Simulated scan of single mutants.
Amino acid sequence: MTRRLREGSGQAYAEVIGDPIAQSKSPKIHGFWLEKLGIDADYRACHVTPGSLPDHIAARRADPLWRGCNVTMPHKQAVMPLIDAIAAPADQIGAVNTVYPGSGGGLEGTNTDAEGFLEPLGRDLARAHYFRMARILGTGGAARAIISALAKEGFTLVVAGRDPGKARALLEELAPAGEHHAIDMAHFADPTDFPFDDREGCLDLVVNASSLGMTGQPPLAFDWSHAPPGAIAYDIVTAPVDTPFLQSARARGHRTIDGLAMLIGQAAIAFAHFFGQPPPREHDAELRKILTS
């Protein structure tokens, strides 16, 4: 049954806000789902600078047609004092990527990045392991959600950044328990002859949580001699989808997960907040073709 979200002469809508915003794939994702479900609503991208963020949120708060927004860089932390309630896990992560009208009448914010990141790892995480380790490359906004998510799943974390002090601060804030490590990202650029032990029964991840390797950005320098056999390579970059990081991982025999997996997973949770029902995930293969065409 088609669900109508029109009110009066206007059309209900949600959006993604950020600076820059032209590169966002969110309008294609949400537009695809709206069309498949026959929902009479819109989803758009809106360029919002840091200085205009408070006025933008205030204007949307007063708009009865607005169903919420996805929040991308650089606003994931700046938006927090502008809303009325922060739901888990955003309160623990310290970053909001989804804002929507709450049941109490105010604006509520949450973070769907953590759940979206874990979604393609579901089968792996359902199994028991002797040991779980993740090398996380990057210390930006997305890394916050990834660090928090993997710490809760029992991983020992090695967080690498151009500023190891920032990496250490993130671990102390988001994963204070456990024997985690902070390191300079340059450590992983050169080959190593480290003799990895038997990894049977272990789960190892190497995650590019940075923008390195994205179109227009410098490449990510990672030598795969730093990853044990059987490690999974996970890159959150979506432009390009098949990054040099993933290509080099496959060449070494590693399984790979691309950034569309996390992007679609986190968008699905936000879609339900905005439009009141889950998206039709049975069409993910078709959606991926659209996003990569």
Rank of each mutant, 00 (worst) to 15 (best):
residue 1 M to N: 04
residue 3 R to T: 14
residue 4 R to P: 02
residue 6 R to V: 12
residue 11 Q to S: 14
residue 12 A to H: 03
residue 15 E to M: 11
residue 17 I to A: 02
residue 17 I to F: 05
residue 20 P to Q: 12
residue 21 I to C: 13
residue 25 K to M: 13
residue 28 K to P: 00
residue 34 L to Q: 07
residue 35 E to H: 09
residue 36 K to G: 01
residue 36 K to M: 08
residue 41 A to N: 03
residue 44 R to S: 09
residue 47 H to L: 14
residue 50 P to L: 10
residue 56 H to T: 14
residue 63 D to F: 07
residue 63 D to S: 10
residue 69 C to F: 09
residue 70 N to C: 13
residue 72 T to Q: 09
residue 73 M to C: 05
residue 73 M to A: 10
residue 73 M to E: 00
residue 74 P to F: 00
residue 78 A to K: 09
residue 79 V to C: 13
residue 82 L to E: 07
residue 84 D to Y: 10
residue 84 D to S: 10
residue 85 A to N: 10
residue 85 A to W: 06
residue 86 I to W: 05
residue 87 A to Y: 08
residue 88 A to N: 09
residue 90 A to V: 01
residue 92 Q to K: 15
residue 99 V to R: 02
residue 102 G to S: 07
residue 105 G to K: 12
residue 108 E to I: 10
residue 108 E to C: 13
residue 109 G to W: 01
residue 110 T to W: 03
residue 112 T to M: 04
residue 114 A to H: 06
residue 116 G to Y: 09
residue 119 E to W: 13
residue 120 P to E: 03
residue 122 G to D: 14
residue 125 L to W: 08
residue 126 A to M: 10
residue 126 A to G: 15
residue 127 R to I: 13
residue 130 Y to S: 14
residue 132 R to G: 07
residue 136 I to L: 13
residue 137 L to N: 01
residue 137 L to T: 03
residue 140 G to H: 10
residue 142 A to S: 14
residue 142 A to W: 02
residue 144 R to K: 15
residue 144 R to I: 04
residue 153 E to L: 04
residue 155 F to D: 06
residue 156 T to W: 08
residue 159 V to P: 01
residue 159 V to H: 00
residue 160 A to Q: 02
residue 160 A to S: 11
residue 160 A to Y: 03
residue 162 R to N: 12
residue 165 G to F: 01
residue 167 A to H: 02
residue 170 L to N: 03
residue 173 E to W: 05
residue 176 P to G: 15
residue 178 G to C: 13
residue 181 H to I: 11
residue 182 A to L: 05
residue 184 D to F: 04
residue 184 D to A: 15
residue 186 A to N: 09
residue 187 H to S: 11
residue 191 P to T: 08
residue 194 F to W: 15
residue 195 P to Q: 11
residue 198 D to Q: 11
residue 198 D to M: 04
residue 199 R to F: 05
residue 202 C to V: 07
residue 204 D to E: 11
residue 204 D to W: 07
residue 205 L to Y: 05
residue 209 A to W: 01
residue 209 A to H: 04
residue 211 S to V: 07
residue 212 L to P: 00
residue 213 G to V: 05
residue 214 M to V: 08
residue 216 G to A: 07
residue 217 Q to P: 01
residue 219 P to K: 11
residue 221 A to P: 01
residue 222 F to W: 01
residue 223 D to Y: 08
residue 223 D to Q: 06
residue 228 P to K: 10
residue 230 G to T: 10
residue 234 Y to K: 04
residue 237 V to D: 00
residue 237 V to P: 00
residue 240 P to G: 05
residue 240 P to R: 12
residue 242 D to T: 09
residue 244 P to E: 09
residue 248 S to A: 15
residue 249 A to I: 06
residue 249 A to H: 05
residue 251 A to E: 14
residue 255 R to G: 04
residue 258 D to W: 02
residue 260 L to Q: 07
residue 261 A to G: 11
residue 262 M to T: 07
residue 263 L to F: 13
residue 264 I to V: 15
residue 266 Q to R: 09
residue 266 Q to G: 04
residue 267 A to L: 08
residue 267 A to N: 04
residue 268 A to I: 12
residue 269 I to K: 05
residue 269 I to T: 08
residue 270 A to K: 03
residue 272 A to G: 01
residue 276 G to R: 15
residue 276 G to P: 12
residue 277 Q to V: 11
residue 278 P to G: 05
residue 278 P to R: 11
residue 281 R to Q: 13
residue 281 R to G: 08
residue 282 E to F: 04
residue 285 A to S: 13
residue 287 L to G: 09
residue 288 R to M: 04
residue 291 L to Y: 12
residue 293 S to E: 15
